[in-house]
Design a protein around this nucleic acid. Sequence first.
RNA 1: GGGCGUUUAGCUCAGUUGGCUAGAGCACUGCCCUUACAAGGCAGGGGUCGGCGGUUCGAGUCCGUCAACGCCCACCA
Length: 842
Amino acid sequence: MTRNVPEKPSLEGLEAKWMHQWEAESIYRFDRSKERSDIFAIDTPPPTVSGSLHMGSVFGYVQTDANARYRRMTGREVFYPMGWDDNGLPTERRVQNYFGIRCDPSLPYDPGFTPPAEPADPPISVSRRNFIELCHGLTAEDEKVFEELWRELGLSVDWTQSYATIDAHSRRTSQKAFLRNLARGEAYSQEAPVLWDVDFRTAVAQAELEDRERPGSYYRVSFHLPDRSPLFIETTRPELIPACVALVAHPDDERYRGLFGTNVTSPLFGVELPVLSHELADPEKGSGIAMICTWGDTTDVTWWRELDLPTRSLIQQSGRLSQEVPDWIERESGREAYRQIAGLYPNQAKKRIAELLVESANLDGEPRPITHPVKFYENGDRPLEIVSSRQWYIRNGGRDPELRTRLLQRGTELDWTPGFMGVRYEHWVNGLSGDWLISRQRFFGVAVPLWYPIDGEGEVGYDHPIVPDEESLPVDPTSATPPGYEEEQRAQPGGFLGDPDIMDTWATSSLTPQIAGHWDDDPDLFSRVFPMDLRPQGPEIIRTWLFSTVVRSHYEHDALPWAYATINGWILDPDRKKMSKSKGNVITPQALIEEHGAEAVRYWACNGRPGTDTAVDFGVMRIGRRLATKLLNASRFALGFADDVDLSAITEPLDRSMLAMLSEVVAQATEAFDGFDYARALELAERSFWTWTDDYLELVKGRAYEGGVAGASAHAALQVALSVYLRLFAPFLPFVTEEVWSWWRPGSVHRAPWPTVDELAPHRGDSAILELTGEVLSAVRKAKSDAKASMRAEVSLVSISATHDRLDLIRQAETDLQAAARAEQVRYAQGDPNVEVVLAQV
RNA sequence: GGGCGUUUAGCUCAGUUGGCUAGAGCACUGCCCUUACAAGGCAGGGGUCGGCGGUUCGAGUCCGUCAACGCCCACCA
């Protein structure tokens, strides 16, 4: 093959050139004819499509790509799909804000609706179908932008395998898996208290909660004993006094022991309430006795359940207190008090109640300000309330110790990188307090694929849903008619009701191995890729994505979904603060790629150790760019000689020494990559590469230019080494390595075999020769540097003192050393290691 | 409150089962147009490896403890 080495190689334009070339030649296309054992399947995280990609995504995806490229070069056919997580609340939020619209399911579909160019204010209400269409439209736009960015970054994804969690195939897979969970009793519905976001008007799951410190106040409120004397409790939520069902204290609390079993009366409302005991009551908190409401917090739910208390729910799904005066408030004065707060939001009601408490002398002292943790939906802006509603759940061990043990076992079967991340899984599973709530009262998502029969009395039969055939999936029960019914029977007595809910996004993305592997419609493909090999992802979604995927796979396949999980670290901004939109310190990947180049950004990402938090560091990116430039220039030198080389010509001890050194690097880098430690593999390759250019290239230069037998040895060794280096760097710097490869080798470096110790075996010498000679050369350079002389300055004598064995080794490279040092003479003496350099007189 | 992680040069980080005078890059200083590379190269200065205590012939590396920072989790009275 004729060599085509440019005069002045440049990084300019390489990324665009190869990005398109790879696509045109389908370099990364998955070959599905391969057997399972020859395939390496990656369950790529589908990024959330709601605006712009985050640097954190770039970081993790590049690291995974390096691992993927390594596996491909070792001969595995890499199944590397890309998904888009576009269903769910993040998309709805983005669409609402982008267009200034809101979904109102009661509105009819308007086929002619076009969204306003500017976000409408106040928001325009649109039908459910219009809303979903806009969601599809906007996510499709975003996905194009994302794909472009991934291509620019050089991800070796097979773009023919992409999916979106809202596409028909994903919906079908998701509904099918859910129906199978239902058939096996793993999914169930239940009317129960749930954590509720009043803005989004949906239930949320345990995995989506976060605590936020919020200011609040303790109100010291008097309840009344039968003799009218006060019993003080402290509460942060006096507005829930009308929802109170009991008071509770610790069973051992001497102060209240005598009251257990007696009744007290609530202030303002005059409701009689029992005083009960429970271990969870903390004598140290407040006055040591608490009021139990249905429900002010999750402890209330526990007490309510365990003490078998009545339900007096006041907060509605809208977040407002009930308009109706509840019937458990019997006294007219109490009913009048309730009218003061009926229909208010809790914070408004709290103010009014506080006034009423003061007026009635039931508030002891001033409210005492505190800060306390309050539960929020992670994407929400207002505290969650607890309301009662019917929801769908999947059993996840939260209420079943046996299942929990089995799922914990799954976690230990999984190979975690880094290992300590497995602890997070274990802690999460151990901390589960209930089953997985999968239904959401939203619109843009996979529908719960069920209808419910309505009997002649108008009662809905939630406990015996009407199930669609698998062949009819995906279905939208709010528009499709169940088998055996007519559409006119919708919501009629004797008819049916379509489940209006959708499933949470995790209920679908927990099936990414099944979606990407086409479990539902391509069993041949599925059998070749499942269980997959690798799940790469961020640490913050171990409790959601990773765990839920394990749960679904456990149920459906009685297997782990993958053998390995690699967990990447966080991205910190240059000041080592966690990057977040709210802090305004987000650096967009697009801007970085434009400024530093994809290769530099990749280099930076691959410098971050697995699972280690890493700061955005432009300095590191510049090093990456310099490395890429160096690769171009060194390649130009290495390929600047004979077109055809004879590998058997590699006879010079220094050449064989260099290849021995390289062989060790290959062995170590391979071992590192096998353990998913791309960063160590890069470090090893890089360190050795700089030795190669600084020492070996300098030492061999003279001989290479001279030619002859010794020159031919250098020419061949240079090419062998370059071929190895290009392949070692290919997972990290895919563009520049491909460019150089194209100068003299057929095909793509990314389909070339990973370098092996075996291929270097015939050429290996003693690696110490290069190392020792390099040290001598450094000493010569130092002497010249100290003398402020040019590196080209002539040297009259180099005296090397070392052990006999070492001198022997250095002697084998004497000619090269002499040439590189520009030394007239080299002398050797046994003794302590030392190099003396006498510069020639000018 | 519990757990996990981090703490090594001014900065960003390596240091793989304990072993020779602790490494790299950036920054800093000095030198060098050298026919692969001056948006480069060569060389140099700089660290009591967070504190304390222990195990060991030997500790950045193992154990204990404390501290700071980060993250995850936790029943909002």
